[in-house]
Design a protein around this nucleic acid. Structure first.
Length: 156
DNA sequence: GCCAACGTTGGC
DNA sequence: GCCAACGTTGGC
């Protein structure tokens, strides 16, 4: 039984980890997510092979800069157990880890950045439920519908 | 650097 | 279980 391929958007601050960094390393454990909703999407929703829109946040021109694929099932984020890590969580235990992640594999860089500004101008085509342009959205991992995935990449 | 919008924490 | 205080995200 094969699950239908799903699609996601994942944000990263390029100063911390950019699409170029992902291209260089090939595959990266998506560590540091400390939001329950985002964790649940990774832990409960993601399947190996799912498509990922790689988004640069908190930068001069925020927007979608590339695509990637989900390269592992969810497993505990090792940084939660490392006291010296910024992502250390003293309340998490190895028996019952609180935070999970997936590995993300580089696919390709877009020919140009699909900017947030441009995406907003196409809001009517993407539908009301596109989390990126919902007011006050701060979620760093969320699902994208197949039609939205197709439409966004057609803007390239 | 500012600040709105949220999510989390902890006192009660 | 409420909610004020605090911390974080992320656009601008």
């Amino acid at each position: 039984m094969t699950a239908r391929r799903r699609y996601w958007l994942m944000k990263s601050e390029p100063d911390a980890f950019s699409i170029d960094d992902l291209e260089r390393v090939g595959t990266e454990p998506w560590n540091g997510v400390r939001n329950y909703q985002a964790r649940n999407f990774m832990r409960d929703g993601m399947q190996v092979g799912d498509g990922v829109l790689f988004y640069h946040s908190n930068t001069e021109v925020p927007g979608i800069v590339g695509t990637a694929t989900v390269a592992s099932k969810a497993y505990p984020d090792a940084t939660q157990f490392e006291p010296k890590s910024d992502y250390f969580d003293p309340k998490s235990t190895r028996e019952e880890p609180r935070w999970f992640l997936v590995d993300v594999a580089f696919e390709r860089k877009l020919k140009r950045t699909i900017s947030l500004d441009e995406i907003k101008r196409h809001a009517d085509k993407l539908g009301e439920d596109f989390a990126l342009i919902r007011k006050g959205n701060r979620l760093s991992v969320f699902p994208v519908q197949a039609a939205q995935w197709k439409y966004l990449l057609s803007m390239e």
